[in-house]
Amino acid sequence: MSASGHERILLAHGGGGQLMDELIRRHILPGLANDTLAELGDSARLNLTSGSLCFTTDSYVVKPLFFNGGDIGKLAVCGTVNDLAVAGARPAALTLSLIIEDGFEIEVLDRILASVAAAARESSVEVVTGDTKTVEAGAADKIFINTAGLGVRVAGADLGFEKIAAGDRILINGTIGDHGMTIISQREDMGFQSGLESDCAALASLTCRLLENTMAIRFMRDPTRGGLAATLNEIAGGAGLSIEIRETDIPVKPAVQAAAEMLGFDVLTIANEGKFVAVVERESAERCLSLCRDHPLGKNAKIIGEVVETRDVPTVEMETRIGGRRIVQMPYGRELPRIC
């Protein structure tokens, strides 16, 4: 029996009455406790230091809800924090909106909320306001989460496609494909889940560290859906320049590589949830790399390529492991369903 005396979510839990009040006070507030949220006002009142703000939102519908290395709660915090982080901001406040299907077990909700709380704590961000809705069985798949995030731009951080120049280096903070391959293998029950673990993590502590210690960062983006291939193509397209990468320098865990090959996926197109790609000034590339490597989320960081002048249209080209060359396309085709 849960703290509120119910085992499952009822439609009435979203009805604005006593049940909802109980749900909020007994299940949602305790883990997230902070002064702003405790006011339970219609709006959260924030006192942010002046400066330029970044604002973002994302919805999370991942299936399965729990996966090796994380769950929908952790993902909902990390994903939004990362969107702020790669924009050069330090996350300050999050919102948390839950859409819950009638009949969802409250015990499972508690686990998800606990991991929201833990992830928020780890990235030093507060959940300051939120909302809970319940819908009839079948109108949602268990639980969907939306978070919006507000961040304050790190002083001096000035990122943008237009800052990118030929000669800049491409840096990634670790192995690729971990999140996507974990979800895919778990969904399909492929039986080779060993060694696969989502990289789901909040990157703000690492990105802020970089931005505070060097002026060399020109642009950052997190390679989530569409993977490294999509992100590099977006960067090339946005900057109007081409990118060359080296396959041998791209970190991939052997288990991820093996699983991708078995299923016929190109690991470059597989989603990540704890990675960022940074375009850094050539002269400071090594320094950025060592700043990354001193941080737990950047131990396997690598310089994987560089920005070059464009011959015809902006492209991403890769030198393969055997010394051949090929284009890295913007991924297309069937989107893998609900990996985030």
Binding site: G264, R321, I322, G324, R325
Partner: peptide, 12 residues
């Protein structure tokens, strides 16, 4: 076919 292209074999 896929392996030939993915590895850039034609180019060498």
């Amino acid at each position: 076919t896929v392996s030939i292209f993915r590895n850039g074999i034609r180019s060498i």
